[in-house]
């Protein structure tokens, strides 16, 4: 992608690296004297590596910790333990003053295009706000021009700088949010469900925009979503999360065509395929019950309460995220076994 940079020597450095990241939120009771009665184990030991120009998809259901992970990666929440490096710089335990320069390199795109833009600011002020915060990036007199270029880059008319967010549709607002995130020319964008609030016909527009920007700017994405079909289109690598842990990690093809973890298989088989001819012919794994509470996750393997393969061993030991003997990619399951559920026809 960055052919002209041509740094073919040595292995490339990851632009974003998370090692053993843990985030526990204390659950407190009492009004005056607060005592901690437990912890929400939102993220529990996640390792990730992201290289320039690549996209890492993170999928999982609500409560799996993917949104907390997004906040940790951009330094909005400090991790309980573990390390997060952006371009080789540790951000996990920086003070808010020291973290400010790093913010230029990693930015966040939000899910809800209605609450992520201040309704009382014009589009020009919203997209230009990064320059007011980092005053040394662009001299004052050139900012207006830069804002217009950013709007143009995300496919909006530069003439719209004086409009307010409510005058735009959801897809357009999402573009405004992307323009704001790109203003400081970051290397990494963490996208937290960027299209799930949009209509189908608009989702494609925003995904294509993200892909074009990736090519033009050499961006790396962490693409967090619950919609597996969207992730398949944009991700090079995919990490599947369940209750704060990554249960399977591999290339897009490995995860979608050769899933090994029972949860990944169930998740994939539950996604309806828009083809009526496949009705009743697809292999369906319907899981029982709901995701357990992250305050008191099951012992051992956290998926065991809903898993059809679970044995006593699963309740006692925590499976590691290993490739295993016959495996091709890391899977956290004692009984990992490849099973194609997306194309499977009975």
């Amino acid at each position: 992608m960055n052919a002209e940079l041509g740094q073919a020597d040595a292995a490339p450095e990851p632009v974003l690296e998370a090692t053993g990241v843990v985030k526990h939120f204390p659950v407190q009771r009492g009004i005056v004297v607060k005592r901690t009665v437990g912890h929400v184990q939102a993220v529990d030991g996640v390792d990730l590596k992201l290289y320039a120009g690549k996209t890492l998809g993170v999928v999982g259901e609500s409560g799996c910790g993917k949104s907390t992970l997004a906040k940790l990666l951009v330094g909005l929440e400090p991790p309980t333990s573990g390390s997060i490096k952006v371009l080789g710089k540790e951000i996990g335990n920086l003070s808010s003053r020291r973290i400010r320069p790093v913010r230029r390199d990693i930015q966040l795109v939000f899910q809800d295009p209605y609450t992520s833009l201040n309704p009382r600011m014009t589009v020009g002020d919203i997209v230009g706000e990064p320059f007011e915060i980092h005053t040394d990036v662009i001299p004052r007199d050139k900012r207006a021009k830069e804002v217009k270029e950013l709007l143009d880059m995300v496919g909006l008319s530069p003439d719209h700088v004086n409009r307010y967010p409510h005058q735009f549709s959801g897809g357009q607002r999402q573009r405004i949010g992307i323009a704001r995130a790109l203003a400081l020319r970051p290397q990494v964008l963490v996208c937290d469900e960027p299209v799930s609030a949009l209509d189908v016909s608009i989702q494609g527009q925003v995904i294509n925009l993200l892909e074009r920007l990736q090519e033009e700017l050499g961006l790396a994405y962490v693409f967090i979503a619950h919609d597996l079909s969207v992730v398949r289109h944009i991700a090079d690598e995919v990490a599947v999360m369940y209750l704060g842990k990554v249960v399977e990690h591999g290339t897009s093809a490995e995860i979608y065509d050769h899933p090994r973890h029972p949860y990944t298989q169930a998740l994939l088989s539950a996604v309806p395929v828009p083809d009526p001819d496949l009705r009743g012919h697809r292999e369906e794994i319907v899981l029982q019950g709901d995701v357990p509470s992250p305050i008191n996750p099951p012992s051992g393997c956290r998926f065991r309460t809903r898993c059809w393969k679970a044995t006593e061993k699963c309740a006692e030991e925590v499976p590691g995220l290993d490739v295993g003997d016959k495996g091709t990619h890391p899977t956290a399951c004692f009984y990992a076994e490849e099973r194609d559920v997306t194309h499977a026809v009975k």
Partner: peptide, 24 residues
């Protein structure tokens, strides 16, 4: 709200967030 989070993510100081986003 997300737009306050966005401002924090951009590195805005507390004073700026309070005046620009919270005060109005």
């Amino acid at each position: 709200l997300d737009y306050v989070t966005a401002a924090r993510c951009l590195g805005a100081r507390d004073r700026r967030i309070m005046f620009k986003h919270v005060l109005p």
